[in-house]
Design a protein around this nucleic acid. Sequence first.
DNA 1: GCGTACCGTTGGAACGTTCCACCGGGCGCG
DNA 2: CGCGCCCGGTGGAACGTTCCAACGGTACGC
Lengths: 346, 346
Amino acid sequence: MARDLQRVQDGAPSLPTLADVAAMAGVSRQTVSNALNNPSLLRADTLERVQAAITHLGYTPNRAARNLRTKSSRLIGLRLTPFVEDAANATIDRFVHALVQATRQAGYHVLLFDGEDAADPSSGYDDLVRSTAVDAFVVTDTFKGSPQAAYLEDGGVPFVAFGRPWTPAALHPWVDVDGAAGTSAATAHLLAKGHTRVGWIGWRKDSPIGEDRRAGWSRTMHGHGLPTTGLASRVEDCVASGYEAAGVLLDEAAPTAFVCASDTLATGVLRKLGERGLVPGRDVAVTGFDDSPFAQLLPGGLTSVRQPVEEVALQVVDRLGKLLAHREVFGSGTLLEPHLVVRGSS
Amino acid sequence: MARDLQRVQDGAPSLPTLADVAAMAGVSRQTVSNALNNPSLLRADTLERVQAAITHLGYTPNRAARNLRTKSSRLIGLRLTPFVEDAANATIDRFVHALVQATRQAGYHVLLFDGEDAADPSSGYDDLVRSTAVDAFVVTDTFKGSPQAAYLEDGGVPFVAFGRPWTPAALHPWVDVDGAAGTSAATAHLLAKGHTRVGWIGWRKDSPIGEDRRAGWSRTMHGHGLPTTGLASRVEDCVASGYEAAGVLLDEAAPTAFVCASDTLATGVLRKLGERGLVPGRDVAVTGFDDSPFAQLLPGGLTSVRQPVEEVALQVVDRLGKLLAHREVFGSGTLLEPHLVVRGSS
DNA sequence: GCGTACCGTTGGAACGTTCCACCGGGCGCG
DNA sequence: CGCGCCCGGTGGAACGTTCCAACGGTACGC
């Protein structure tokens, strides 16, 4: 109620400042500042008096002034990659939500910006950090050779990556999900169900993430003494490719199960199975990757590997905090385990 | 290159300031400021000299200082509602992407924050605006009786809503999508295909959005002289409810097509059809709402109403700009037309 | 010739916070 | 008693920008 008084006349709301609080509490500005930032420095009764004045006036510290003085904004920048309406986007969106939650707990907020053109890695990043608009970045798209990771490292811009650095030289903090462990779990699950001819449908060889996920499948197959020759296919990440690859593999290698590098590819496989009158989970098993809404909503459901984005977000923010405090967290990466969500398709 | 010189010694990068530029260009600070904010005030040769100094030093205005002085942050707050993994979320996420793009063009950025608990509408909003962290808000969840819309209006906080105010008293700027027009288009599409018994599966009566969408269906049916009695069902927005409602309607009213208030409900309907051996689009037609990834990925595809979130975002930002400039845009709302994406299910 | 107006530019002040040097006083200790 | 120290607190300065009042100079109208 008291705070609403500030708004009676519009146009010049003129919020209470630290000086107002100081005057009311009968202390200096610095003491009020300490009450907010280092309460332990104050005597108990002084602290109480200041706090009373703060609540009575409805005082809230002015962000801009604080930022100017401390040279930090408590804002984390996140570049939103252009929207592609498929399964892959679902994981990013889940991550954004998780990141917002995680940053809040750490007293930060998330600033979204747009990668104008992907060609210029500096686009956006540079201005934001130089104008002290954000303290650091979370970088999500390190996979495509990640020009911006290198750029940011050069520029001395603090950031943490969601995704391993696939170039050996890089030594920034990162958090990632162990894709191989995910596909390995999927493969093991299928083997436990009695399958022996498990096919792989993944991405082209130039994708390190794709190769990582593929390794989980082949490793597990070999671990069980099973061959993989002729059972793998590497294609574009789209429904049509999954559809075609499934057809080819079914004809040439007769697998009884498919492990896919993405839900998108799995969708294509399911489409092919439907066309041939094969029932997923009964005749041929299928697993996807990312646990997209599609996997969940599909009749019967699609077994899929779910990335622990909430945990990723927490770890990212943790690294970020350390980075901004000590300014030295180089080379520390964490690999998190995804888990398999088993549904009707397997 | 020149700008990198600032970073040679880490720890105290000490970016160039306006004063540095002024010194180099041989003018006063204010002139540099004008060069950035009101170039027309400068003589051509002066402007050129200043700009040369700016680029040479790699100067970027300090955001915090500017914010402090101008009492604005050029940041727009958006509260991210808790993540629910279904079709409805897809539209919000699309909107977030669109909003980021639209705000960039207007020179703004998006600040994400988290609605700690939905019970307290003030949570988050108040602090952010009082601390001058954001200039205004975009409010997305006005549908649930929207306590925060009223709260923000009371507090004099500038905001624009994505969604109509469903309480008549409210008079804030808003942009929304005409749900009735969407379902009307879906219904008309089905009628054109020769259907006459078109069922409706929507949300409970307490949802204004749901009633709006329902009106589009009933209006169109009546407009063609067709009855709606016994053809409608109002349930929770989940797959199971759609599934059950479809079963009941099929038994009791024998519709040959369903218009659904959401892709989620449509998913339930499709599931029921599959169970009964009915082929969507051949035996019974189905349309959804929101054009979620699921609708797109489903084998055959689900006909669905797609909201023009890109256009919504542009309009929202436009309103926002006017609001922050003139401080008077009351009562101005815009209703945008969605469009029907026809796929195999109809 | 003089007053007036405008143009381009200037220097000081202000925004609201935190950093920094310092201060009085009480206490322990030699 | 005198010294040093820590505690709780103070006031001035600084962060980097824009606002504001005012400047000299030129052009114009009378």
